[in-house]
Every structure is written in structure tokens, then in C-alpha cells.
Design a protein around this nucleic acid. Structure first.
Lengths: 222, 222
DNA sequence: CAGCTCCTCCATAAATCCATGGATTACTGT
DNA sequence: ACAGTAATCCATGGATTTATGGAGGAGCTG
């Protein structure tokens, strides 16, 4: 048939999304945006990118429809286009973790040795309901403000060493951060353990919590 | 290169999967492989690719862990690495359809006008149970053999015009093919309607049927 | 309007990807 | 061993992508 071009065009358009997912830095940006909207300069600094480079990558993501932009005065905020995009990113991570041999070792090299205990979301709820655990959010403040687990205490990982006394000493600590590939909760649990506190990690992190339909509080709008 | 941070290395490895999804022809190959294993020459011919080009694309998919190879004598069969890969491909299609503006029109241009009625999987089961519908698989024979909906009749789209009398005249026909982006069932319903038969399409196709956990018969192994 | 901030656009050079054709490897059958 | 089939490997030219500076546009503030 002569409609071979139509099929090619269709799949080429679909590949635009794949192409957008085809660069590590763009995945980092996507992972950050999954926590909430951010400005270009903020994203560039956090992902350690030049401003123009970050802008170009963000445009690529926007071109693929994965993110949207909103102007707030002079700054432009990028945000994930929807939870379907976050779900796609999670699924890609899952497949890569299961299928790409190098991902496991690379994750371990980044997150550190597998020496911290982790508990499920159900177990977290159970322990909190029993009054024997406090939930600790170690992400940066703005991300906590954009949305967090109900009842969680916010102490960004960088301030944790100086604010240990804010956490009740008779409680066990369940720390969490952005997601499965976020190093903060690993570092937090190690730091807490080094100070003699009983601490465990929540499996994965806030993104997976939210996408699994658990309750969330905060102001995702801005 | 040596100053690449551990985080950068991790995300670069993850991006290998994205990169593999970043070319229309590779997505076509993935979509074909979602129906069952195939040889390189077969895939090249079906996707209208040169043999070496097809081989290169398949190697890219293999490098990303999305497909596996098995040697059968002198031929090498490529197969999807697992259902998680199929689910990733479905999710990408979903996001692209919802977020990329050009996908809708391109799909319509390829699949034809939206003039054929479609029914859900539940409705198909209902009508078959009531004995008033026959399920028609219009994919190529080998794909039917690799797995199909229980009770379905196999008449490849190319042979349908010559084999109309094989379908009971007093039954309504529910046609299906590979998936949401497969043109066969659209063509089949139009052809059947032109011959005065009452025919509808199954929403999406066999891939989605299988991934949704519905029963399947066939020999997926080979 | 002038100055400032935030971001995009443009030009460029290096790197990577893509399609293609000829050579090579792996295996089968005689 | 030899011919034949299936697929990969390799080299090449052309297209695309990426990082990076400098210029430019949009919008706030005084």
C-alpha cells in the first residue's frame, strides 16, 4: 500500500517521546520535575547544567509533550505534563533496572552500600498508626512544601546533623526522599544510625508514594 | 569522562533504554516483537528495512536489554525480553497519544477514518458467551499461532476477501489484530461491512488483551 | 525609559547516530 | 571440504544531537 509513509510518520512521532527520554540529563530533569514545578535556573543548578544547556534539554522535553511551562512574572516554571509522564518514567526505570546489567552496580555506586533497612508503605502506615514511628522527609524544603506524606517532619538532609534533637528520641524514624534513585534517605539513615538512632528507609520515595494513590498534603500548584 | 559523577553514570545507563525507544523503526520492531519471536530477515522485510539496518536496530534494542536472542540453527530469533518491556511500550504509546499533538492526526491518517465501531474486551466476552458473535483474528498466521484469543478464527487480512464464506453468516463478527496501532482490524471491518456483514472491532488488540491478563492460547515459546 | 533578571535563540564545533554496501562469521546440508 | 543461508561486523558519508558562548526578547522595578 502507499500508506507506508503514514505508518512511518506515526511511529516517528511516537519516537519523539522516546528520544526525549534518551539522555541522562533529561531523565534527571524529569526526576526533579516529578517532585514539583521548578524554574530553569533552579533546574540547571540542581542538575549541574549550564543555563543554556538546561534550557535546550527542557525544550526537548516540552517538544515531546512531557512537560509544560507557566510564566510567573519573569521566571518560567517547568512542570510535568501529568502523572502519566511520571508513570512512564517509573516504568522506564523499572525496565532499565531489570534489563540493563550496568544499572544495578551504578545504582549501588551512587546510593551507597546496601546496609540500610527499608520498609514498605503499608508497614510505614502501620508503625505510624501504632504511634511508634515518626516520618522524616529529608528532601529540600520547597519539595516538601509542594507535597509530602501527611504528618511527616521536614528536615533537609543538609541540616539533619544539626537538627537531630528535633526528632523525639523515643521514636523510631522512617526516612524518605524523592524516589528509588534518590540518595538522601540512604544518607539520612546512615547518619541517624551513626548517632545511635533507630532509623529505616521507606521503600522508594515520595513519587512512588503519590503515584500509588496514597494520601498527600501540600500545594502542588506552586 | 573520568569526572563523570556516579549519579551521571547511573542516569546515562538509564538513558540507554530511552535512546533505544528514540527511533520510529525501532518502535516498529518492538511492536512486531510484542506479537511473538521473529527472525532478523523476517523483521527486516516486515518493517521494510535493509537487512543490515534492521540488524543494527535490533542490536541497539538488545544492548538496551529490551530484547533477547535465541539461535535456532542458522537463524537467530529476537524476542521481547519480557512483559515489562511490552508494558513500557504501551505506556509510551499512551503518553505520546495524550501529549504529542501530531500523534492523533497521524494515527487517523494511517488507520483510516473513524467509521468503525469498537467494543471493549468485556463486551466481546459477553457477546461470545451469548453465542451471538464470532471472534476473528486477522493477523498473519504465525502471529496467530504464537498466541491468540481463545476460540478465535484466523483469517489473515490479505486472505479475508476470498474466505468470507468461512464465517457463519448468522453471527456478528468481532475482529482484532496486533494492537491499537495496527491497521488490519480497521481494514477488516470496512471490508466485511462492504460485504454486508455486521462487524465491529475489538478495542486495541491482542497485545493489550494479553497484558490485561485475559486468557490466551498458543505456543509463545516458538 | 533604564537597568536588571530570567530565559530563549543563534552560531559553531565536537560527538554521535543512521543507512548502506562489501567483507566476515556461524551454521547447515551434501 | 564446499556451497549456501542467515546474520553480524566494518568503513563511509551524511544527518542529527550536544555543549557552550554571545546576542536578543520578555517582563519586573525604580
Amino acid at each position: 500500500m502507499s500508506d507506508e509513509t503514514a505508518k512511518g510518520a506515526l511511529f516517528t512521532h511516537l519516537a519523539r517521546v522516546g528520544k526525549a527520554l534518551g539522555h541522562g540529563k533529561r531523565l534527571e530533569l524529569l526526576d526533579l520535575l516529578a517532585q514539583g514545578p521548578r524554574s530553569v535556573a533552579d533546574l540547571a543548578a540542581t542538575a549541574r547544567l549550564g543555563l543554556t544547556t538546561a534550557s535546550a534539554h527542557l525544550q526537548a522535553l516540552k517538544q515531546a509533550g512531557l512537560v509544560t511551562t507557566t510564566r510567573h512574572g519573569t521566571t518560567i516554571e517547568y512542570a510535568l505534563a501529568g502523572d502519566d509522564v511520571a508513570a512512564l518514567w517509573l516504568r522506564l526505570r523499572e525496565v532499565a533496572g531489570a534489563r540493563v546489567a550496568d544499572v544495578g552496580p551504578a545504582a549501588q555506586a551512587y546510593l551507597g552500600p546496601d546496609d540500610t533497612e527499608e520498609i514498605t508503605r503499608e508497614e510505614l502506615l502501620r508503625r505510624v498508626a501504632a504511634g511508634r514511628a515518626v516520618v522524616l522527609d529529608v528532601r529540600p524544603g520547597p519539595e516538601f512544601a509542594a507535597g509530602h506524606i501527611p504528618g511527616a517532619v521536614s528536615i533537609p538532609i543538609g541540616e539533619l546533623a544539626d537538627r537531630l534533637e528535633e526528632i523525639p528520641a523515643d521514636q523510631e524514624i522512617v526516612a524518605y526522599c524523592r524516589g528509588a534513585l534518590c540518595v538522601f534517605s540512604h544518607d539520612a539513615v546512615r547518619l541517624l544510625a551513626a548517632h545511635g538512632r533507630r532509623a529505616v528507609r521507606l521503600t522508594e520515595g515520595f513519587l512512588e508514594w503519590r503515584l500509588s494513590g496514597r494520601p498527600v498534603v501540600g500545594e502542588p500548584g506552586r
